[in-house]
Design a protein around this nucleic acid. Structure first.
Length: 495
DNA sequence: TTAGGGTTAG
């Protein structure tokens, strides 16, 4: 077999996923030119075998074969994202040395690789700007996707509009990325405009576009629009099902379970995470345990998001021992894992455990946010740990420089109101809160509410909660909507 | 004979 034929065969085998056969053939080749090396490494890269792709590249260089523009764009594909086996920079240097760094495919692959890391977005933009009129549709989409990926969705959407102004046709790629950006910033209006454009240009037959549309409608609380698209799609893939199930798990958990039963595909890790979350919302412990069994059978236990969802589910189902078991077995934990477990302790009345776990979290080097403090203060409130809760509130502001949001204020008010007879000990409340500064929420300053509560308490310390009730309820009825629920809970209990 | 961009979970 000639080298040319062998190379064609390697490429063909890889495109069908038969990478091992391709590699066997590659190893048997007596001689390999740059095309053969490139076919092998690109084959690995396109099958997600990134380390292998990079390994072939290194062996190729060691063997003295000179990489060309095809090689560079192939190996750069393997070097995207935070888990990439290498970063773009050394490959960029190779491309410069070989004189191929300005070739369109190579530049686009470089933009894509740089923009796959948060710290590389600026470098990607520099390359993108330098391209000028040499930009292709792929340059635009890689750059827009880079912005959307790293929290600069608005910049991405502005670039998307510039792209259209510059005369580039709306492609399925650009459209799905732009829709994803709309989803991230919850821009239903732009999302709907894009939907209309999709219909006009017949892009709505593309599954990635449809999936992005479904996701956008689910996130923008238009579940019926999402469902109508879902029902109207003749071809659905696992992502379509997962997106719809995830949408339902947020607003109609029973329907999420129903959809799982209708699904023909084998559920994956994404599916089971959403289903676990649906079970959590329904407090359906038996169902949740079955899902956990399915997770174990499929070896999804090591997945971080899956673990977090299971901790949350067991916590909300009141099974704190199971929650802790899952938490302890998690090989890798993030902020959400700790928050779910702390909140789990709190909602099940284990205030001391929540406080201890917070210490462990700090010890583990995880930086707390509003949600952690909200869980903690709420845990302390439920467990009668007023002093601890109040100290956490102060530490949130003074040590961690976090401005309390309305939920945290609500929880603190709850904490103080529950203190009951100890209320007098919090005489410093008003002064301390004044120090924080006034915060207007829904037309009323929380400080004003706290002031009111304080003044009524001071006026009749024998029955502070009852005294609070009428006045606070009056304020709430005039100015509060959803944020008042925590107050109302206290008030109804007190009166 | 070798190369590119997109969509799903807490």
């Amino acid at each position: 077999m000639s080298q040319k034929h062998a190379t064609t065969l390697i490429s063909s085998l890889c495109s069908r996923g038969a990478v091992c056969h391709a590699r066997a053939l590659f190893d048997e080749m007596p001689e390999r030119d740059v095309v053969a090396w490139t076919a092998m490494l690109s084959g690995y890269a396109s099958n997600g075998l990134r380390r292998e792709a990079l390994d072939v590249f290194r062996r190729m260089v060691a063997a003295g074969a000179a990489p060309n523009e095809y090689t560079l764009s192939g190996v750069l594909t393997a070097c995207r994202g935070p888990c990439a086996p290498a970063t773009a920079m050394p490959l960029h240097a190779v491309a410069v040395r070989r004189g191929v760094d300005r070739m369109p495919y190579v530049v686009n692959a470089l933009i894509d690789s740089y923009a796959s890391l948060a710290e590389g977005v600026v470098d990607a933009r520099r390359l993108f700007d330098a391209l000028g009129s040499g930009r292709t549709a792929a340059s635009w989409t890689s750059m827009i996707a880079g912005y959307a990926r790293w929290g600069q969705e608005r910049t991405g959407l502005r670039l998307f509009k510039t792209m259209l102004k510059d005369g580039f046709e709306l492609s399925t790629f650009a459209c799905s990325i732009a829709l994803h950006a709309c989803t991230l910033v919850i821009d239903l209006c732009l999302g709907q405009q894009l939907h209309l454009q999709c219909i006009k240009k017949a892009l709505d037959v593309n599954l990635a576009v449809v999936n992005s549309l479904i996701d956008m409608y689910c996130t923008c609380a238009r579940i019926l629009d999402a469902r109508s698209l879902f029902d109207g799609t003749p071809e659905r893939n696992l992502i379509t099902w997962n997106t719809m199930i995830a949408g339902y798990s947020q607003c109609d958990p029973l329907m999420a379970l129903q959809l799982l039963l209708e699904m023909n595909d084998e559920p994956n890790c994404f599916t089971l995470t959403s289903i676990t979350s649906a079970c959590a919302d329904l407090a359906a412990l038996r169902c949740g345990k079955q899902v956990h069994g399915a997770v174990l059978r499929r070896s999804y236990s090591d997945d971080l998001q899956m673990g977090n969802a299971l901790v949350d589910m067991y916590s909300k189902c009141g099974s704190i021992t199971n929650a802790k078991n899952v938490f302890d077995r998690m090989g890798c934990k993030d902020k959400f894992s700790w928050t779910s477990m702390i909140a789990g302790y709190g909602m099940n009345g284990y205030g001391n455990e929540a406080v201890q776990l917070f210490s462990s979290m700090i010890h583990a080097g995880v930086h707390p946010d509003h949600v952690v403090f909200l869980s903690l203060i709420s845990s302390c409130s439920h467990a009668g740990l007023e002093d601890e809760g109040w100290n956490f509130f102060r530490s949130m502001i003074n040590e961690y420089n976090l401005q309390p949001n309305k939920e945290v204020y609500g929880s603190v008010v709850n904490l103080l109101a529950r203190a009951g007879s100890k209320w007098g000990e919090y005489a410093f409340t008003r002064r301390s809160l004044r120090g924080i500064g006034s915060r207007k929420e829904a037309g009323i300053s929380w400080i004003e509410v706290m002031d009111k509560m304080y003044s009524f308490t001071a006026a009749d310390s024998s029955s502070p909660q009852v005294c609070l009730a009428d006045e606070v309820l009056h304020i709430l009825s005039q100015h509060m909507d959803d944020v008042g629920s925590e107050f109302c809970h206290i008030i109804f209990k007190a009166t």
